[in-house]
Simulated scan of single mutants.
Amino acid sequence: MKLHRSCDVVPDGSGLVCRQGRVYGIVTFAVFSAAFACPVGFGYAAGIPWLGIPFGLFALLIVPLLWGDMLSRFRSSNWLLWIRPDGLWIHLRSYRDQSPHDRPAVVELSYAEIAQIGRHAERYSVQSRRSRQYHKVDSLQVRLRQPETGEFEAALAAGRQTRQPERVFLGFIRSRARLTHFPVSLPSPEVIRIAWRGGYNHAVVPSLRRALAELSQHAEIAEPAGETRKASSQISDAEIDDRVLELVKRGDRLDAARLLVHERNYTLTQAKRFVDELDERV
């Protein structure tokens, strides 16, 4: 296992490059923009322009974020997995990360280091005050022959703590957003898991089936595996703590806060503060 700086690795035409889907970003931007524009247009057409004012104000906050997300998908740094004839390269850096590219964030694995590669499906639910939300995440799971993941785990932690540059909206609104998109995780010392579809904004292309077909030429493919997490009401306090920590590590900070509100009777403000503090430490 070797670590490289992001700025030193740019995928070329060899092998198969997997990245966050660009079409997904375009469609998301178009759908939400239309959803905000329709009430505004209807209000003006019907002679009641005040009807569209709330939607217009909300659009001023949301649409620039969606526009930025869409543009991020077209950057050269938007790649997650590079399947090369001589090894597997994993990019730990989120496509949304706008910090300098000079930190170690690319892991190079030789196929001799890999025991098995396969599909992993995880199903879980998060209870809010009014409803239960169900999630499914399909992932690529890489099982190593030896748990040589000390540097890997350190690089993941460094990526979660990376400060983003300050952004200015509308000429006067200053914002420094936290990263909430972390597709690569380390559920155990010998297992690397790469979220592919579902969950929080994971939409990697090409399909996981195609990626596995490409990898089958170089490594052993395991049988599909999966797990269904118990509902939060059926697990112990220690397991709730573990789940909150896991959600924070994968970037699902909203679901982590919801879990605290429902199971620990936190207010939303208390839950958000707790998640923020936990995010600073992990």
Rank of each mutant, 00 (worst) to 15 (best):
I114W: 08
H91V: 09
A157Q: 00
R130C: 05
I90D: 02
H91A: 14
V142T: 03
S99C: 14
S110D: 14
H120P: 03
Y111F: 11
R129Y: 10
L186I: 07
P104V: 09
S139R: 01
G118Q: 05
P104Y: 11
D86Y: 09
H181F: 09
F182Y: 05
A112G: 15
G171V: 12
E151R: 06
L140W: 12
G118A: 11
R123I: 01
V106L: 08
R145A: 08
Y124M: 10
A157N: 00
Q98F: 07
S131V: 10
L140S: 13
T162K: 03
Q98S: 10
L144E: 07
P187T: 06
R145P: 08
L109W: 13
D97R: 15
G159C: 01
I114S: 06
P165Q: 00
Q164R: 13
E148V: 13
P147G: 07
R129P: 07
G87N: 14
H181K: 08
Q127F: 07
R130F: 04
E153G: 01
H120G: 13
V184N: 05
R132H: 11
A177C: 10
L92C: 02
L140D: 04
S188A: 01
S125H: 03
R96L: 10
R93Y: 13
A155Y: 03
A115F: 13
Q164F: 13
L179Y: 01
I90V: 06
T180G: 15
S185P: 06
T180N: 14
Y124T: 05
I114D: 05
S99V: 09
V107N: 04
V168T: 08
R174V: 12
R160S: 02
Y95P: 00
R167V: 12
E148M: 10
R167E: 11
P165M: 00
L156W: 02
R103P: 01
Y111I: 06
D102L: 06
A177N: 09
